[in-house]
Amino acid sequence: MLRTSPTSFRIRRALTQGLAFGALAVLCVGLGSGCKKKSEPAPEGASSGAAETAKKQSIQNIGSDTMVNLAQAWAEEYAKVEPHLSIEVSGGGSGVGIAALINKTADIANSSRKMEPEEIEKAKAATGQPPTEFIVGFDGLAVYVHKSNPLESISMEELAEIYREGGKLGKWSEVGVKSIPGAKSDDIIRVSRQNNSGSYQYFRETVVGKKNDFKSGSLDMNGSKDVVEQVAKTPGAIGYSGLGYATPEVKILKVSKKKGEPGVLPSIPTVHDKTYPISRPLFMYTPGTPTPAVKRYLDWAMSDAGQKIVEHTGYVPLPK
């Protein structure tokens, strides 16, 4: 018979499912035991400087989604400085990076928030030394609206009332916007992040209030870029994301500390002098004291050459 039998379809489905299960099982095993292997190359490179140049060494750089663009740009550029050193960058979020640091699978953890005291304790228990903290740049968390939105400036209080659980603002007319061309309703469409991203936690800390929670019903996107894309596609939306993710499709709002005060646009000088209220340092953590290779990399990242890339990728470099 020519026609593919329905049983073959069912078998194929069973097969793909089986494969998925298999992959999951492998993953489980990997999570349990694979972690130990990866931490080996680091001390090796530290002890034998001669072997370092001969073998291709790799640095695992894991963490914050906010920083992943920057970390990647650094890694690419650094390949020209030290070609035998490969820096493998992956995102997932600040929490993932710190967890990897604790599990000893990361040589450098990127984090857009400071490590919690308990996380430092855990890292100390795992590696024997407290992790070392480096501030490698700054990030302004910009507030984005659709480009057709006439609003120019918003206050921290208004932002809090829009995003806070039990907050009073829910309509654009309540913040003084009469109509947005293309918007289908007066409702403010809140775009937020999934509840364990660094940006979410930082926005909660500085804007919503540390003890408060977000109003539920916001569109919780899975990445910094997704927030900007979603705002660009939705005329009635407001969202927060890294300054580096701005596109011509969206508008960055000025933010004022109090209602009535003049708003401040996020920029390099306003982040440095802290007049822009929603900005934060970007951290890199190493387990204990960094190995020579990692130290060279971090020194380079914080040098003029590295900081130029910070500026190019849309973040805010360290003050000179």
């Binding site: 509840n195 364990n196 979410y200 936690q201 909660r204 540390k210 003890k211 408060n212 929670d213 539920s216």
Partner: peptide, 17 residues
């Protein structure tokens, strides 16, 4: 309907929503 697994002050695991 209150799903706040990472809340600082009041963790709630309501999965109805």
């Amino acid at each position: 309907t209150e799903w706040y697994p990472t809340s600082v002050s009041n963790v709630r695991y309501g999965a109805l929503a």
